[in-house]
């Protein structure tokens, strides 16, 4: 009996393509660790931008941290902001280009520690922008230090015996905080470690961009992702840990809509 081998070319031929990388993601290797969620979130944003037909009108702001090079992966006009200042940079862009779509892409250290003031005040002004807040509970790029969202008891290189809330304070639920502000029209927390959750996250990102189109104010989409290298776990272990710990303290779902 002979087995027929299907070549990649046959799979890719027109008509059988079921998934294609959006043109808005550049064809370069991502700098993220295997198993990290950043790549998925990048793709979802760029798919939404492509599907809404707003590629030529979208300007992104990249932060300091693992996603500092987001502009090398997302094929749109982008600015790289100083650490924590992305919401101020986005404010500057949006105020002079009110008809463009402007979003920030920020990690937890960037958004919830050094950039807390910029985050809260951009939200409080109801800046008509989208904030994508990627929360992995740790400083990934600098080598696994404690973040404002590091869970109680969680080990990091600057909390080697676990986060002690009596000396280091409590993990910050900043999305819940800004949801209280009248300028924020949409605040949600999502995750991307399961296909169903990926789809939900994409819908949330789309809703956020639609809010911007409709001039509704600030939308913040928090996405929980693992940092398997920072957490010192395999990607699979990290996803399980995320679900059993991160998603308990930071519950998934809409906070304000």
């Amino acid at each position: 009996m002979t087995t027929s081998v299907i070549t990649p070319e046959e799979i890719i031929k027109t008509g059988t393509v079921v998934f294609k990388k959006t043109e808005n993601i550049n064809s370069v290797p991502l700098s993220y660790c295997p198993g990290c969620g950043h790549g998925v979130v990048h793709r979802l944003i760029m798919e939404v931008v492509e599907e809404m037909g707003i590629t030529a009108d979208t300007i992104g702001v990249a932060p300091v941290g693992c996603s500092v090079l987001a502009y090398e992966f997302m094929n749109i006009d982008m600015q790289q902001a100083a650490h924590g200042r992305a919401p101020a940079v986005a404010t500057g862009i949006k105020r002079v280009f009110p008809n463009k779509y402007v979003f920030t892409y920020q990690g937890d250290g960037d958004l919830a520690a050094i950039g807390t003031a910029e985050t809260i005040h951009a939200c409080n002004r109801g800046e008509n922008i989208v904030i994508i807040f990627v929360n992995n509970g740790i400083y990934g790029m600098t080598g696994g230090q404690m973040a404002p969202t590091t869970l109680e008891g969680m080990k990091s290189s600057t909390s080697p015996y676990g986060r002690d809330v009596h000396t280091a304070g409590y993990p910050l639920k900043i999305t819940e905080m800004v949801a209280m502000l009248p300028g924020v029209c949409y605040a949600t927390r999502q995750a991307v470690h399961k296909p169903t959750l990926v789809n939900k996250t994409k819908r949330a990102i789309q809703k956020a961009f639609e809010n911007q189109r409709d001039n509704k104010g600030t939308s913040i989409v928090e996405v929980l992702i693992n940092c398997n290298s920072g957490w010192k776990m395999t990607p699979e272990q990290a996803n399980i840990w995320l679900e059993e710990n991160m998603a308990v303290y930071f519950p998934l779902g809409d906070i304000k809509k």
């Binding site: 100083a82 940079v89 404010t91």
Partner: peptide, 16 residues
């Protein structure tokens, strides 16, 4: 909200 925010707004708008 601060001089820090103001100069970064300048960065964003100047970059545009």
């Amino acid at each position: 909200e601060s001089e820090v925010a103001a100069i970064n707004m300048v960065y964003g708008a100047a970059g545009a």
